[in-house]
Simulated scan of single mutants.
Amino acid sequence: MVKIGNISLPEFPLLLAPMEDVSDPPFRRLCKMHGADLMYSEFISSEGLIRDAIKSRMKLDIFDYERPVGIQIFGGDEEAMAMSAKIVETVQPDLVDINFGCPVKKVVCKGAGAGVLKDIDLMVRLTKAVIESTHLPVTVKTRLGWDTDSINIQEVAERLQEVGIKALSIHGRTRSQMYKGEADWTEIAKVKANPNIEIPIFGNGDIDSPEKAVAYKAEYGVDGVMIGRAAIGNPWIFNQIKHYVKTGEHLPEPTLAERAEAAKSHLTWACEWKGERTGILETRMHYSNYFRGIPHFKPYRQRLVTSDDLQELFGILEEVSSQVLSLES
């Protein structure tokens, strides 16, 4: 069993990474159904929360069926981070996570996300400000460092543990790498092997198959793995990994009907949460992912991304579900 403060997770838990414009409640609900052990909101600007920005506030929506669930915040100002942690606490998540890893320029330029990797003292002060303003467990997600010449994750891990974080998720790339190249898990393994580190260490980056999850578990000794892009259009990956860890065997790939059902559920929940118009528009980006690799899907995709009628969309997905032979031939 893995403990994050008072939160108990199974041995070798699988975490869904917070992803901007992806990890919203409908997507998280699907991942939870298919085996995710801990999930996070999309990252939320501390400044946006304080300004009462509608988009930031909406990202605070969490539901009991998601638990345990964390809300992730980012920012570069201690007071703003402390205030936003207090706001987060009002919706009663299970934990607060701080993003020190987002490499996107508009975040980094504000001295937030991965921008903080250049200043460990500031990272420590921001973290301390959040910890002191909430009774919830505080965790951090970060990267190895700013670039290959300034990999500082060993010092970061020790100093953040010292101020009181309860777990650390490490993406095995530097900020300068963005999402390119291979993630370097050897640095993550060094953190886990450090005798001074007592908190759970979760690895993130390039986990896209059950085999890789098992191999990385054995080779790098992490307490669990965080999965991001590989779960987009593929919420089944969590149970696939769990089954493989337990049995050494693969679960069958989801059928066309199961893929269509997932897309329908996503669409339904998006409309319930965001309203029908926004739900329809924002689900369009997901159809190609649910049906990735399926031959002859293009005509259906074209119809799915151009229709504005909910019942018509359900009808198209039913049609896809029943076209097993022609689609898979």
Rank of each mutant, 00 (worst) to 15 (best):
M1N: 07
F12Q: 11
L14K: 10
L16W: 14
A17M: 11
R28F: 07
C31R: 01
C31L: 01
K32R: 15
G35C: 03
D37Q: 02
L38C: 00
M39C: 01
S41W: 07
S41D: 01
F43P: 05
S45V: 10
E47W: 08
E47V: 08
R51G: 13
I54W: 10
R57G: 00
K59S: 12
L60A: 01
Q72Y: 07
D77V: 08
E78M: 07
I87C: 06
P93R: 09
D97V: 08
K128F: 02
A129M: 00
T134R: 03
V140F: 02
T142D: 05
D147A: 05
Q161I: 00
L168Q: 03
G172W: 04
A183K: 06
N194P: 13
N196E: 13
I199E: 04
I201D: 06
F202R: 07
F202N: 04
F202E: 02
G203Y: 02
N204E: 09
D206S: 05
D208N: 15
E211M: 06
V225Y: 07
I227V: 03
R229Y: 00
A230I: 07
I237T: 06
T247C: 10
P254Y: 07
R259V: 14
W269R: 00
A270V: 09
E276C: 02
L281Y: 12
M285W: 13
H286C: 12
Y290L: 01
R292C: 14
P295Y: 14
H296V: 11
P299A: 12
Q302P: 10
Q302V: 11
S307C: 05
Q311Y: 15
G315K: 12
L325Y: 14
S326R: 13
L327C: 11
